[in-house]
Design a protein around this nucleic acid. Structure first.
Ligand code: FE
Ligand code: FE
Length: 967
DNA sequence: AACAAAAAAAAA
C-alpha cells in the first residue's frame, strides 16, 4: 500500500531506516516522519502495559496527572530519532543522499559517511531537543532531563563532553535547509499526534532521575517494536508509507501478540491462608505458621516496602513468598514477579514451582500470561523450551514464553542500526583467544526476557540493575513492573551485597515491593537492607531545591528469633516470629586435624553401618582427605567438589540425593568428602559430620546435614547428632588457633577466629548447640565486633580485625566503581554510565561485574584424537563433534555439560595467563560463535589418557577425582 | 606457585 511521494515538504525525504537490497532488489526505506510517528503511536499503547507503579513514578513529576505523563512519554518517542535529520546521519546511504541533494539538502565539504560516527544521532538528538526546549523557555535543568531520554535511546546516555563536542561539529548538525526541515518535521509530528499540550507542559514538568530512566526504557522498547520490519514494513524508496500511525500501531500491536499484563484480583487481601495455599499450589495441606505470618505481614503493609523472611530451607518459604507477592501485586498494581535465585540450577528448579502459581493465580486479565526464564543456560531448560512460543489472545488460556531462537537471525541487513555509534559495547565482551571481542550471544529471547510479566532467573539479573551497563534502563523498567522476590540472600558475598544495596535503593525509589528470603542474617546486614530500601524510597521531587527533612532511618530491633519476619513499610519496621519447629540438639567438639584422628572417629560409625560427611574448605584438602581415606575404605569413599564437569556434578548430585536423601538409600558405611558444594541446597542426611572450621553460620548450615531427617533410625554409634570441627593446627586448650591458610584465604582469618572462639565457648559449656534457637545469637556474635574469646586472643583478634577491615574496604570500593549512582543524586542521566579511566584503574579488582571473579574460568573439556573431537569417554557418547557448524541441539547440551571451572592459579601471574590463553586460543571454532551456549566458550582438549596442557600447567581429569592442575 | 562456589556477556 504505497504511492509515489504523496507529501509535500522536503522534510518528508529525511530517512530513518534503509534496507540494503538483497540480490539487487530495490532499496527500501522508512522515512523519519513515519518512524517517529510509529514509535510515538506504539508508546501510547505501551503506557497501559507499563502498569501502575511505573506510571505513578512518572506521573509524580507531572503533578500526579497520568495522562499528562503519558503524553510526555509519547512526545519523547516522537522525537527520539530527530538526530537522524542531520547531514551526519543522512549521508550514510548513497541513494537516499542523492535524493536528499535533489531536494536541496547540502553536505559539508569533504563529508564522508565515516563522519557520522563523530556525531551519533542519539547525541545530536539530545542536543537538538535541548536547544529546542530552551528556545521555548524551558529552563536548562528541565530541558536536559527530558533531552537525555533522546540522548540515551540507544542504551547509553551521552556524557557532558560528548554534548560539548556537538558545538564544535555544527557542520555535521546542519543548518539552513536541515534546520528548517527539522522544525517542520517536529511541527508535523506534534500536530499529527496531538502533542501540543505535552510540549507546552515541559515548561513545568521537571523529570526526576527515576522518570528519566523509565521513560528512556519505554522509548527503547517502543523503538524496538516500531523498528520490527515485520510489524512496520519498509517501503520502496521514492514511495511513502500510507495510513494513520495510530491505526498502524494498533494493527501492529495486535500482530505482535503481546500477552495482556496480569491484573491481580483482591482475593489474596482477605482470603484464608490455607484456602489460598490450596488454590494456588494445588496442595491439600494447611498453611503453616510461617506462611500465615508472612501473609499477615504483607497484608499489614500499607505502602510498598521490604519484607524480609529469615527461615530454614523447606519451611514453605516459596509458597509464602508467592502469597505475599500476590497481596503486593493486588495492592500496588504490579504486573508479575521477578524471582531471583543464586544459581542457575536453583532457578531451573524454581521455574516449575512458579509456573504452577502463575497458571493458578487469578486475574482480571484474559488470555495468555507471559513468563521468562532468565539465566545463561535458560535455552537448555526443558520446561522453558516446552512452553508455547507465541501467544494470541484468541487462543485458550495458556502460558506463553519467550524462548530463545534456535539460530540467529540471518539474511536481513538493516543498515541504519547503530551505524553511527562506536561499535564497542559497554560490556567488555568475553575475552577471546585471538584478542578480539567475538562473544556474540544472540537469542531473540534474551531481549524479550526483560519485558515478561513474570521472570524466574538468577539474582544477577536483579543485581545488574545496579551496574553501569548498556541498556540498564530496561532492567529497571522490567523490575519496576514486578514484585521482586530474592531467595537465599545470605549467599550474597561482600561484592554482591554492594550491588544488592544499590539495586534495593532503586526498587525503593520505584515503589517496588521486595520480598527477601534468607537464613539468619547478622543484624547489621538486616539493617543495611532496610536502610537501602528506605533511602531509595525517601526521594525529593527535583523541582524542590531544598531537601525535605525525613526522620531518622527506622531501626530494626535486634531480635534473636528464627524464623523471623521483618517488614518495612512507610518508614516503620515491624517484626513477627513464627513457630521454630522441633528443637534439635547437636553435640559439638573439636577434632585434631590429621588423618589418624579422622579415621578413629569415622571408624565406629561406619562399622556400625552409619554414614559420614566430611566437609573441607578447599578442593585441595578435600582431595587429600579423599586420597587418605580411600586406602582404608575404598569404594565407600566419594569425593564431591565443583571442579568436575557438569555431567559428573549432576551425576554426583543425583547419587547424593538418592543415597542420602529421604527414603532408603544404599547409605550404610559410606563416606562423602566434599567442599562447600555439600553445604548448598541438597536435602541430604548423614549420621556424623566432620567439618573444617568456617564462619559459624556456615558451620550451622553444614550441621543441618547431620540427622536432618528426624524419622530415620540410626546405628548405635551415632544415636546423637554429632559435629566435629577440625582444620585447626594442634594447640593447648585456650590458645589462639592457627587456621589453615586456604581456609583463611576463603573466609578471612578474623571471621574464623571469632567462629573458633564461639565454638570454644560451646565446647566449654558442655558441647551442645540447639537448632534453630541458638542460631541467631551465634550468627549475630560471629559477625559483630563485640569481644569474644579469652584475653590472650585479643591481640591476634585485633590484628586480624584490622586486616579484615582493610580488605573489606578495598573490596567494597573496587566493587563500587561500576555501580550505578543511587536515586536522587543526579538531576539528569548525562554521563551516568561512564567511568573514568582513573577510577577504573584504582585497583586490579575493579570489574564491571556484579560478582567478583577470582581469576578462574570455565572451559569445555573435550577429548582430542586424530579424527576429531569427542566427549570424554565416560559420557557414553562416541560421536565426533563437528567444528565447522553449530552441532545438533543434544550435542550442544552435552557440550554445556562438559564444562568445568579451571582454578584461578593458572591466571595468577600475567605471563602464565598469556600462555594459558594462547593454548586455549588454538581451539577456536568460528562456526560455534553464533550459538547462544557455545559462543565465546573456551575449549580445553585432553588426550587419550585425559591429560592436557595449559601454559606451564599439566591438566588431568578423572571422573571420580575431578580436574587436577599440576606444575 | 595456593586458594569455594557461583554467574554474565546483541540491537533497532
Ligand atoms: Fe535511534
Ligand atoms: Fe528509532
Amino acid at each position: 500500500m504505497t504511492t509515489t511521494s504523496a507529501r509535500a515538504g522536503a522534510y518528508h525525504h529525511l530517512w530513518a531506516k534503509s534496507l540494503r537490497p538483497e540480490d539487487g532488489g530495490p532499496w527500501r526505506w522508512s522515512s523519519l516522519w513515519t518512524h517517529l510517528t510509529d514509535t510515538a503511536a506504539v508508546m501510547r499503547l505501551l503506557w497501559d502495559w507499563a502498569g501502575a507503579p511505573v506510571r505513578r513514578v512518572i506521573a509524580a513529576d507531572a503533578a500526579g496527572d497520568d495522562t499528562a505523563a503519558r503524553e510526555v512519554a509519547v512526545l519523547a518517542a516522537s522525537l527520539h530519532d530527530i538526530g537522524k535529520g542531520t547531514p551526519a546521519f543522512a549521508g550514510q546511504v548513497e541513494p537516499l543522499r542523492i535524493e536528499l541533494e535533489r531536494q536541496g539538502y547540502r553536505w559539508p565539504a569533504g563529508y564522508d559517511s565515516a563522519h557520522s560516527r563523530d556525531l551519533p544521532h542519539s547525541v545530536a538528538g539530545h542536543h537538538l531537543v535541548e536547544q529546542m526546549l530552551i528556545g521555548r523557555g524551558v529552563d536548562k535543568v528541565s530541558a536536559e532531563a527530558f533531552a537525555v531520554i533522546i540522548g540515551g535511546h540507544h542504551g547509553v546516555p551521552p556524557t557532558k563532553s560528548e554534548l560539548n563536542d556537538v558545538f564544535d561539529r555544527a557542520h555535521l548538525l546542519g543548518d539552513g535547509a536541515w534546520r528548517e526541515a527539522r522544525v517542520e518535521l517536529v511541527e508535523d509530528v506534534v500536530q499529527t499526534l496531538g502533542l501540543e499540550a505535552a510540549l507546552d507542559s515541559l515548561a513545568t514538568v521537571r523529570l526526576s532521575d527515576a522518570s528519566q530512566i523509565l521513560l528512556t526504557a519505554l522509548v527503547v522498547m517502543a523503538d524496538w517494536i516500531a523498528s520490527n520490519a515485520d510489524l512496520f514494513p519498509l517501503v520502496p524508496i521514492g514511495t511513502h508509507c500510507q495510513g494513520d500511525p495510530t491505526e498502524r500501531a494498533a494493527r501492529a500491536w495486535r500482530e505482535f501478540g503481546f500477552p495482556e499484563r496480569w491484573l491481580p484480583t483482591t482475593e489474596a487481601l482477605t482470603a484464608d491462608a490455607t484456602a489460598l495455599l490450596r488454590a494456588r499450589f494445588g496442595v491439600d495441606y494447611e498453611a503453616n505458621r510461617l506462611q500465615q505470618a508472612v501473609l499477615e505481614a504483607a497484608r499489614g503493609m500499607a505502602e510498598p516496602g521490604l519484607l524480609l523472611i529469615e527461615a530454614v530451607m523447606g519451611g514453605g518459604k516459596t509458597e509464602a513468598s508467592l502469597l505475599a507477592a500476590e497481596v503486593f501485586a493486588a495492592k500496588f498494581g504490579c504486573s508479575g514477579v521477578f524471582y531471583g535465585l543464586p544459581t542457575r540450577a536453583t532457578a531451573d528448579a524454581m521455574l516449575d514451582r512458579v509456573l504452577v502459581w502463575w497458571q493458578n493465580v487469578p486475574g482480571l486479565d484474559r488470555g495468555d500470561r507471559n513468563i521468562a526464564l532468565r539465566h545463561g543456560n535458560a535455552g537448555l531448560n526443558d520446561t522453558y523450551r516446552g512452553l508455547p512460543r507465541r501467544s494470541r489472545r484468541d487462543e485458550t488460556n495458556s502460558i506463553a514464553a519467550s524462548v530463545p531462537e534456535e539460530a540467529p537471525l540471518e539474511g536481513s541487513h538493516i543498515l541504519d542500526v547503530g551505524r553511527d555509534e562506536p561499535s564497542a559495547p559497554l560490556w567488555d565482551g568475553r575475552r577471546t583467544m585471538d584478542g578480539t571481542a567475538v562473544a556474540h550471544y544472540w537469542t531473540s529471547g534474551r531481549k524479550k526476557a526483560a519485558f515478561a510479566d513474570t521472570v524466574v532467573g538468577t539474582i544477577d539479573h536483579e543485581l545488574l540493575a545496579a551496574l553501569r551497563s548498556r541498556h540498564v534502563v530496561l532492567r529497571h523498567l522490567g523490575l519496576a513492573r514486578q514484585v521482586v522476590v530474592l531467595d537465599e540472600v545470605h549467599a550474597a558475598d561482600t561484592w554482591m551485597f554492594v550491588y544488592l544495596e544499590r539495586a534495593l535503593e532503586w526498587l525503593g525509589r520505584y515503589g517496588v515491593p521486595v520480598i527477601a528470603m534468607s537464613a539468619t542474617l547478622p543484624p547489621d546486614q538486616r539493617q543495611r537492607l532496610v536502610d537501602a530500601y528506605e533511602n531509595g524510597r525517601r526521594w525529593v521531587p527535583p523541582s524542590h531545591e531544598r531537601r525535605e527533612t525525613f526522620g531518622e532511618l527506622p531501626q530494626v530491633p535486634v531480635h534473636d528469633a528464627y524464623p523471623l519476619v521483618t517488614a518495612l513499610s512507610a518508614a516503620c519496621v515491624t517484626q513477627r516470629s513464627a513457630d521454630p519447629g522441633t528443637p534439635r540438639p547437636v553435640s559439638m567438639a573439636w577434632l585434631t586435624d590429621d588423618v589418624d584422628h579422622l579415621v578413629r572417629e569415622i571408624e565406629p560409625v561406619v562399622t556400625a553401618g552409619g554414614c559420614v560427611l566430611v566437609i573441607r574448605n578447599t578442593v585441595r584438602r578435600a582431595v587429600e582427605t579423599y586420597r587418605a581415606l580411600q586406602p582404608v575404605w575404598g569404594e565407600a569413599v566419594t569425593l564431591a567438589h565443583s571442579r568436575f564437569i557438569g555431567f559428573d556434578r549432576l551425576r554426583k548430585d543425583d547419587w547424593l540425593r538418592s543415597t542420602f536423601g529421604r527414603g532408603d538409600g544404599d547409605r550404610s558405611g559410606r563416606i562423602v568428602v566434599a567442599t562447600q558444594v555439600a553445604e548448598q541446597s541438597l536435602d541430604i542426611d548423614f549420621d556424623l559430620l566432620v567439618t573444617d572450621l568456617a564462619p559459624i553460620d556456615l558451620i550451622l548450615q553444614r550441621v543441618g546435614r547431620v540427622h536432618r531427617h528426624l524419622e530415620r533410625t540410626r546405628p548405635t554409634a551415632a544415636q546423637t547428632p554429632r559435629c566435629l570441627v577440625t582444620g585447626v593446627a594442634p594447640r593447648e586448650r585456650g590458645d589462639v588457633p592457627e587456621v589453615d591458610r586456604g581456609s583463611a584465604y576463603v573466609y578471612g582469618e578474623y571471621r574464623l577466629l571469632r567462629s573458633a572462639a564461639l565454638l570454644d565457648e560451646i565446647v566449654a559449656a558442655g558441647g551442645h548447640v540447639t537448632l534453630p534457637s541458638d542460631v541467631p545469637s551465634l550468627v549475630r556474635r560471629c559477625y559483630s565486633d563485640e569481644p569474644v574469646g579469652p584475653p590472650v586472643w585479643q591481640l591476634a583478634l585485633d590484628a586480624a580485625r584490622s586486616r579484615a577491615e582493610t580488605e573489606q574496604a578495598a573490596l567494597v570500593s573496587a566493587a563500587g566503581v561500576y555501580r550505578l549512582v543511587g536515586p536522587g543524586k543526579r538531576r539528569s542521566l548525562i554521563g551516568t554510565l561512564s567511568v573514568s579511566v582513573g577510577e577504573a584503574e584504582t585497583s586490579t579488582d575493579v570489574a564491571r561485574q556484579v560478582r567478583r571473579s577470582d581469576g578462574g574460568f570455565e572451559v569445555v573439556l573435550l577429548r582430542y584424537a586424530v579424527d576429531g573431537l569427542s566427549f570424554l569417554p565416560h559420557l557414553g557418547d562416541t560421536r565426533r563433534i563437528p567444528t565447522d557448524r553449530v552441532p545438533e541441539r543434544d550435542v550442544v547440551r552435552l557440550l554445556a555439560r562438559s564444562m568445568v571451572r579451571v582454578p584461578a592459579v593458572v591466571t595468577s601471574r600475567p605471563e602464565w595467563t598469556d600462555r594459558v590463553l594462547n593454548d586455549l586460543s588454538r581451539n577456536y571454532f568460528s562456526a560455534w560463535q553464533r550459538d547462544a551456549v557455545l559462543g565465546g566458550q573456551l575449549i580445553l582438549l585432553l588426550d587419550e589418557s585425559n591429560c592436557g596442557t595449559l601454559g606451564p600447567f599439566q591438566v588431568t581429569y578423572h571422573d571420580e577425582v575431578g580436574l587436577g592442575v599440576q606444575w
